[in-house]
Structures are given as C-alpha cells and as structure tokens.
C-alpha cells in the first residue's frame, strides 16, 4: 500500500537512472567504487550498448548533485527500457534497485538532479 502509484507517465529516454543502488560510503572507497563501476557496466552490457556511465562521487564540503544515483547512457531507448525493466527490482549489495529516466539534454549538461 502506498507503493503502488496510479498510472502515471513514464517517458523513457536513452539515459537510465538507477536509484537506491549506491550509498555515499560505497562511493568514497576507491576500490569499492571501481568494483561498483565494473559490476554495473557488466550487467548493463547484457541489455544493449553502453555509451557512457556516470556515478557521481561525494566530495568533502561540496554538495555534488546526483550522489547516490547511477546514470547509464545506452545507444537506444529500447535498450534503456529493457535494462530498466530487468534491473528494477533486482537487489544490488542487498538494496532494491529502482529505475528511472533522465532527459538527454540534462544528462549532457551534467544536471544530475
């Protein structure tokens, strides 16, 4: 209850956003960060061509936008949609991953809100 939303519009783009996947602590450790990049890149490749992958890292004394989110640029909207469905609901390090999309223009402008 409360988690089921009424039919609302999902506007898929080539930019898949993965939520609830990484924490600030995971991203601070450099080895851990490299492993996380590998794990996500490997998994996403199964669903299409990954053009780029961005995982914002926290910086001391700075509020970095998008920390805690993972942004994956696929070569097509179809691949992003396949990945969104396949990965959404899967666990990553014990947390349930949720998918979303970001406008391409925002992604390329670095607006990782």
């Amino acid at each position: 209850p409360g988690l089921q939303m009424s039919q609302q519009q999902i506007n898929p783009t080539r930019i898949l956003v993965l939520l609830n996947m990484v924490t600030k602590d995971d991203l601070t450790d450099s080895d851990e960060y490299a492993d996380i990049l590998d794990d996500i890149r490997e998994e996403c490749r199964k669903y299409g061509n990954v053009e780029s992958l961005q995982i914002p890292r926290p910086l001391p004394d700075l509020d970095v936008p998008g920390v805690g989110k993972v942004f994956v640029e696929f070569s097509s909207v179809d691949s992003a949609m396949t990945a969104a469905k396949a990965i959404g609901g899967r666990t990553f390090a014990g947390r349930v991953t949720i998918s979303s999309y970001l406008d391409e223009s925002k992604y390329f402008a670095g607006q990782f809100q």
């Binding site: 988690l3 939303m5 609302q8 519009q9 999902i10 939520l19 469905k85 349930v96 998918s99």
Partner: peptide
C-alpha cells in the same frame, strides 16, 4: 513488495 520499479518521469 507491491512496488513499482520503474518510476514516472514527473516525480
């Protein structure tokens, strides 16, 4: 859990 795993864009 009855969760929606792909979120709407207008949240």
């Amino acid at each position: 859990i009855g969760a929606q795993t792909v979120l709407p864009s207008n949240m």
